[in-house]
């Protein structure tokens, strides 16, 4: 009897040990319904929705996955939420109309693009203070950070530039002219390239951060679609640099690109007006926010297939997951 009980206990514990301690969560900011949708990373089902400030767009996870940062542009602040309880903990001094931000690889500080004020604001997350305001071009939006944290790249939508900013001096060290309306900047994991998408130009510029020169421009062509319907916005490159994905806005597709040859391998039909992308923690899945169909699409990274779409709030904009 005792042995049997122990046997059950061992089996019971072994069963638990086989499961991950916590599933990761997926957070989606909904620009129009002013809320955040929470999905379970295992079931990919909506488990919660909570209200946030006005016009939430940029979204990221900080403090080892315990804090969710949401840029609420119409409230001129960045809100910080608990990723377990969804309680609003505090706000950060973001500067006016924060749209998109990026966290330093060390976890602090936060670099925020202020769309209406032509600034990048640097904020210390620990003491919640503004460290610097860096003047950049008109309508700053895209924010990328080099893997070693030494450089941030901000794109300005109207000036059509990628500004390279030294994170020590907070000075612009180079400006690279790209195609019209640059929206997003993404570094390769080895820091050898930064990819900048141009929404109206319809291209992705591959820039060498050492020379600040454009080494290649990726172009897109979808039979049956007018070129102006192809509007690249979100860009994600896997850590192993095997695959890159580019969200193409009203083309309703995500392009799959070979990061070595820059060849477009496939176009995946996702949802309407796809803007931003985010990986699952193990990068086996990619999530796209589809602003007009009000859903997210789930893409299997290895198979390059859309496996599911899930309805979220109105005008989903940004997506991020907690770490495993």
């Amino acid at each position: 009897m005792g042995v049997t009980s122990r046997g059950f206990a061992v089996l019971f514990l072994a069963g638990f040990a086989a499961q991950p301690a916590f599933a990761y969560k997926i957070f989606v900011s909904n620009e129009k319904s002013n809320d955040v949708t929470v999905l379970d990373g295992d079931t990919l089902e909506v488990i919660d929705t909570f209200e946030v400030g006005q016009r939430p767009r940029g979204i990221t996870v900080a403090n080892d996955g315990n804090h969710l940062l949401v840029a609420v542009g119409d409230d001129d602040t960045v809100e910080v939420y608990d990723t377990e309880t969804y309680e609003r903990l505090h706000t950060l001094p973001s500067g006016p109309d924060p749209e998109l931000f990026v966290l330093h690889p060390s976890g602090n500080p936060l670099y925020i693009a202020n769309e209406d004020d032509n600034l990048v604001t640097v904020v210390d997350l620990e003491n919640r203070s503004m460290i610097a305001e860096i003047p950049v071009g008109v309508e700053p939006e895209g924010m990328g950070v080099s893997p070693d944290g030494s450089v941030i790249v901000n794109t300005s939508e109207t000036t059509n530039m990628a500004h390279f900013i030294d994170t020590e001096s907070h000075e612009i060290v180079a400006n690279v002219l790209v195609d019209q309306r640059p929206r997003f900047a993404e570094f390769k994991s080895d820091g050898s390239e930064v990819w900048v998408s141009s929404e109206i130009g319809g291209t992705v510029s591959v820039i060498d951060p050492a020379t600040h020169e454009i080494k290649h421009k990726i172009e897109f062509d979808i039979p049956g679609l007018r070129p102006e319907a192809i509007q690249p916005v979100g860009v994600r490159i896997t850590e192993d640099m095997e695959t890159a994905f580019v969200a193409l806005g009203p083309a309703n597709r995500v392009a799959v690109v070979d990061p070595e040859t820059y060849e477009v391998l496939d176009y995946l039909l996702v949802g309407q007006r796809v803007w931003q992308l985010g990986f699952s923690p193990d990068e086996s899945l990619l999530f796209s926010t589809n602003g007009v169909s009000n859903d997210i699409s789930v893409i299997d990274v290895e198979d390059r297939e859309v496996t599911k779409s899930v309805q979220v709030g109105e005008f989903p904009w940004g997506v991020v997951t907690t770490p495993d």
Binding site: I222, L225, R226, A229, P250, A251, L269
Partner: peptide
Amino acid sequence: LTPAAIWT
């Protein structure tokens, strides 16, 4: 609308 934006 264009069919290609909806249909593959």
